[in-house]
Simulated scan of single mutants.
Amino acid sequence: MKQVFILRGLPGCGKSYYAQTLADDLVAGDEGQYLICATDDYFYNDDREYYFEKFKLPEYHNLNLARFINGLKEGIPLVIVDNTNIKKWEFVAYSAAATALGYQVKEVIVGEVKDKSLQHLYAKRNTHGVALKTISKMAYLFEW
Rank of each mutant, 00 (worst) to 15 (best):
1 M>D: 12
3 Q>D: 05
3 Q>S: 13
7 L>N: 01
10 L>P: 06
12 G>I: 11
15 K>V: 00
16 S>R: 04
16 S>D: 01
17 Y>A: 06
25 D>I: 04
25 D>T: 11
26 L>Q: 13
28 A>F: 10
29 G>V: 06
33 Q>F: 01
33 Q>E: 13
37 C>Q: 05
44 Y>M: 01
46 D>V: 05
46 D>L: 11
47 D>L: 10
51 Y>T: 09
60 Y>P: 06
61 H>T: 09
62 N>W: 02
63 L>D: 10
63 L>M: 15
63 L>T: 02
64 N>I: 05
66 A>E: 15
67 R>Y: 05
71 G>D: 09
71 G>K: 07
73 K>W: 01
74 E>S: 14
74 E>M: 14
75 G>C: 10
76 I>Q: 05
77 P>K: 08
79 V>Y: 03
82 D>T: 03
82 D>L: 02
84 T>C: 15
85 N>D: 02
88 K>R: 15
89 W>E: 14
89 W>F: 12
93 A>W: 03
94 Y>L: 05
95 S>F: 00
97 A>V: 04
97 A>N: 06
105 V>I: 06
112 E>Y: 09
116 K>Y: 07
117 S>I: 04
117 S>F: 08
118 L>E: 13
118 L>P: 10
120 H>D: 14
122 Y>S: 07
124 K>I: 03
125 R>G: 01
128 H>F: 06
128 H>M: 10
130 V>R: 13
131 A>E: 15
133 K>Q: 14
134 T>M: 12
136 S>P: 00
136 S>R: 14
143 E>P: 08
